[in-house]
Design a protein around this nucleic acid. Sequence first.
DNA 1: CGGGGCCTTGATGCTGTTCAAATAGAGTGG
DNA 2: CCACTCTATTTGAACAGCATCAAGGCCCCG
Lengths: 218, 218
Amino acid sequence: MTYTTFIEPAATANSNQPNQFEHLMNQMGVRVSFARDEEIYVQEEKADLIYRVVRGTVRTTRLMSDGRRQVGDFYYEGEIFGVEAGDEHLFSAEALSDCLIQAIKLSALRDSTDGHLERLMGRAANRELLRAHEHVLLLGRKNACERVATFLMSAAGRCKSERVELPMGRQDMADYLGLTIETVSRMLTQLQASALVEFGGLRDFRVKNQTAMARLAA
Amino acid sequence: MTYTTFIEPAATANSNQPNQFEHLMNQMGVRVSFARDEEIYVQEEKADLIYRVVRGTVRTTRLMSDGRRQVGDFYYEGEIFGVEAGDEHLFSAEALSDCLIQAIKLSALRDSTDGHLERLMGRAANRELLRAHEHVLLLGRKNACERVATFLMSAAGRCKSERVELPMGRQDMADYLGLTIETVSRMLTQLQASALVEFGGLRDFRVKNQTAMARLAA
DNA sequence: CGGGGCCTTGATGCTGTTCAAATAGAGTGG
DNA sequence: CCACTCTATTTGAACAGCATCAAGGCCCCG
C-alpha cells in the first residue's frame, strides 16, 4: 500500500454520489493508491473508514473457511464502498486494477458534520442494500444465462458509450454470479452466438439486441 | 387490514432493537393488525413508513414478472422491517401469521427527533445489509444441505428454548433458500436421518448435533 | 520464439429440478 | 370425537442444468 497524497484537493468532478459527501471527503479524506489485487481492507477488520473510488475499480469478496469465494460487488469510479460493516467488515475489498482510493475516518466525519453524516451514510447504506437485494434475486431465482445477461446489462448501464469495458476477469464474474468460470464462459459464447452481444476483446463488448438482453435481465 | 389501536402504549418490553427507537415508535406509531397472508405493503409502493413486529412474523417477498418468487427475509417479534427502500419498496411484506404491527411515518419521525432518527435508521439499514450479505453468501456458494442447515440454525438462534418453532411453511423456506419445496423437504429428511436435528411436528424441531449443524451452516 | 496466464471448449457426472403420486395434517361439519 | 375434505408435505423416478475434470487455444510479454 502506497500513500500518495494527503488532503489533496479534488481533481475529478465525478458526481455519482451526493456532492456534499464528495466535498467532505475531499476536505478531510486521505488519498491512497493501491496496485492491482492489493487489499484495501480485509474481512473481519474493524471498520472505521469509508472509501470512495477516485480512479480504478474495486471488488469486495468474502471467503468461506474451505476456500469458496463470493464476490459481494464491484465499485466503479465515484462510488462509495466499505459501508457494509456492522462493527467489523464482512467482506474484504481489493483493487481490481490499479486504483486511487479516497478514505475518510468515520469518527472524524462524525465530529465535524453534526447530523449531515448520518443522512449521507444512511443514503449510502440504502444504495448498498438495494444492490444487495438485486444480488439476492439474481442468485436465488435466475438461471446461468439470465445471470450473465443481467451482469452485462448492469455493466453496460454504467457506461455512456456503446462499447462497454469489463474491468474484471471471468473468475471474478463467476464468483459474483454464483457460477463457475466455465459456465460464465459458455453463456458468453452463447449470448454472442445468438447475436445478443458482440465481444471485441475479452473484456470489451457491445449490446447488439437491447430488447432481448433487457428481457433476459428481467 | 384491521385497525386495532392507535398510539397504544407498549405492552411488550422486547429489546431486540434499541430502546430509544421502541420508545419513539410507541409514542408516535400506529398499531395495525393483519391476518395471515395479508399484505402490509407491496412491491413498488412508495415507502413512507417503517414497521416493527409487535406480535407474529412477517416475510418480505419479491415477484418476478413470470411468477418466480424470492423471499427477502423473515421478521420476528421486535424486529424492524420496511427499511429496504430507496424510494419505493423493492419487496412486498406479508403477514406470515396473524400479526400485530406497529407502523410509523418517517416524515413524522424526522421532524420530531432531530438527528436521532438518522442514526437509528442507519443502524436498522446496517442490520438489513448484514442479513442481505449473509443471504448472498448462502445463495451464491452454499449447497442445498448447507442452505437448509443454515436456515435451521438461524431459526434456532432466535429461540432461547431448545424446541424451535418455524413460523413459515416449506414453500416460504424454499423461496428464501433459492431451492424448490421438494429439495427443502428432502434435505430436512436427510438431516433428520443423520440425527443432526429431530422434528416434533412439521414446524417444530430440535438441534440434536450442535457441532455438526454449526459446521454445515459454516 | 517460447512460457505462463487466462479463457474456451468438450465429455462426463452430480446436484437439484420437474413431474407425478402417495401420505400426513389441519380444518370443518356432523 | 370422528369422518371427510382440502391443502401441505414427503417420496419416487426421470431429467436438465450446471459443475467438474481435462484439453486445447489465445494473448500478453519477456
